[in-house]
């Protein structure tokens, strides 16, 4: 392949990965924006989501890549997979907040973050113990249609992923900007105490942001499965750390920032893998994380800084 074709090819792949990272990054950014908490459990909620999606497909009788659907059944199955996974993940996220983190909200220091690390461990190792540690073939009922741009190839999944991500992100933006609960959410991010005094039900706002963030992680999980046709119990860590980097790069707490950061990280990852080496992609991404945090902690689009005094 020529250099240009490689570049086009990796741009297509990078945008796809980036869309997934963006969805995942939104969960980090919303929770951080409101609670100033790095939610490590988000990694594992995403991973559990891939298994939920896998079992949903299998419930429809779709195993591996052999069952190909067309037309309405395809749309129906995909829709079902997305909805079920998003609801289940959203529910897990809400339970984590309701039963664990809420008790620790008043506690100063790293207790909440350590708890999310613990929950992350519990989720991923439960999958290891009760489902298994091997790699799982992820079902994909989408017909293997390919589009060619010169020598670069685009699979039909890729534009589909872009559309789904765009719809979800627009939906979230609308929710945060235009609805009453969204406004309450922004108010809580600015100053939870003042928001509470103005009649905002802060508990409900936090619960909602956990639901939305985790549901988006669920959507990212379906996308991960369809794209890689594979999952296992530890995929959450690598993808999660990249998504977190994306959130930081865009400006943590900043919703459009997470989307931008996600796309950038996706493209950086594919380009590094292509033009430097796959081995160093991770090092490059983590170096970006460190550099951004050190030199521009507010990220590209600026942090919605919770006022800490």
């Amino acid at each position: 392949m020529s250099g240009l074709s490689l570049f086009v090819q990796q741009s297509i792949n990078g945008l796809t990965l980036g869309a997934m990272y963006a969805l995942l990054a939104l969960g980090f950014t919303m929770v951080y924006g409101i609670m100033e908490l790095i939610n490590f459990a988000h990694f594992s909620v995403f991973m559990v989501g891939t298994f939920v999606a896998l079992y949903t497909f299998e419930a429809f009788g779709i195993f591996g890549q052999s069952t190909i659907l067309h037309g309405l059944p395809l749309i129906g199955v995909l829709l079902a997979a997305f909805i079920v996974t998003m609801v289940v993940c959203g529910g897990i996220g809400m339970s984590i907040e309701r039963f664990f983190l809420r008790r620790l909200r008043a506690v100063k220091g790293p207790a909440s973050m350590i708890t999310t690390i613990g929950i992350s461990y519990i989720l991923s190792n439960s999958v290891l113990l009760f489902i298994g540690g091997q790699g799982f073939n992820f079902p994909n009922p989408i017909p293997p249609v390919r589009f060619h741009f010169g020598q670069a190839v685009m699979q039909v999944e890729q534009p589909l992923i872009w559309v789904v991500s765009a719809v979800l992100m627009l939906g979230l933006t609308y929710f945060v900007q235009a609805t009453k609960l969204g406004k309450a959410m922004r108010a809580t991010a600015q100053d939870p105490e003042a928001a509470r005094m103005m009649g905002v039900d802060v508990d409900r706002v936090i619960l909602t942001s956990f639901f939305l963030g985790s549901a988006l992680a669920g959507a990212a999980a379906v996308i991960f499965g369809l794209y890689y046709e594979y999952t296992n119990f530890y995929i959450g860590f690598d993808a999660g750390l990249r998504a977190f980097t994306a959130a930081v790069l865009g400006g943590i707490g900043n919703v459009p920032g997470a989307m931008l950061g996600g796309l950038l990280i996706g493209i950086i990852e594919t380009m590094t893998s292509q033009f430097i080496s796959t081995n160093w992609a991770e090092v490059v991404i983590f170096s970006i994380l460190v550099i951004v945090l050190v030199f521009r902690p507010a990220g590209l689009l600026g942090r919605v800084a919770p006022n800490k005094s």
């Binding site: 908490l37 750390l241 930081v248 991770e282 983590f286 994380l289 460190v290 945090l293 050190v294």
Partner: peptide, 22 residues
């Protein structure tokens, strides 16, 4: 990294912890 506040420090050290074995 030490200028960073607690949570950020955690994530940066996590990054270093990943980079070194790689």
């Amino acid at each position: 990294t030490l200028r960073l506040q607690g949570d950020y420090l955690a994530i940066v050290t996590l990054g270093f912890g990943e980079i070194v074995p790689i």
